[in-house]
Amino acid sequence: MARSGKKTGQGAAGPERPLFIFPAWADRFGATLFAVSMLGVAFASFVAVYYLAPQTLNVNYQPVQPVKYSHKQHSGDLGMDCRYCHNTVERAAHAAVPPTQTCMNCHEAMNPDSDQLLLVRESNATGLPVPWVRIHKLSEFAYFDHSAHVTRGIGCVSCHGRIDKMEAVYQEETLRMKFCTDCHRRPELRLRPMDKITAMDWTPPGGDQLALGMKLKKEYGIDPSLECSTCHR
């Protein structure tokens, strides 16, 4: 019987078809595929965790704001205190973005025709708000209270970075839970005198934050809570 390179089907009623036989290397294919896909899953997880982590997504987040307000110019060069505009920070949970009228306090007279302030003037005239883009945001199941921190010796710069050097604000720290609990565990590494809360460039005298921090911790009676309901309600 003549034989071709391929085997043929046995006893088929229809036309003959070549029988497919897996090549030898197919024996190891399944295992290889499994190993590769496990590696792939691991890689994908790593990518997800790394790139979706707060450190990656939040730090340096610098959205474009509707008005090109420069903190560098106002708090840095002009030396305006943070609390002039964010005036609720010592009594409320939110350090509220100031209303348009705060801007108009000065800009009624200063640069009244500047193009950059067009949106601000429109807002002042119509009563509609300026739609700022939010940068620092905690998860909604975490509740942060500014007044509890600002009135107890934590400076603005500790969490927000050198705002006075930012033309456009970006997020300096991750603000994830570890960031908060690190300080709650060792507040002495961050404490500063009450009158230096808004001083962005303050350094502890003699460079010894630990000593000063321990002293202030005792003086101010700082005992930050690590209990869950402090922030999670």
Binding site: T100, Q101, P131, W132, V133
Partner: peptide, 21 residues
Amino acid sequence: RWPVEKIVPYAHRPEGRDPGN
């Protein structure tokens, strides 16, 4: 990307009214 959230303050904040309080 994370959704963009807006902060929408008053244009003229009534006296004594702290947002969120």
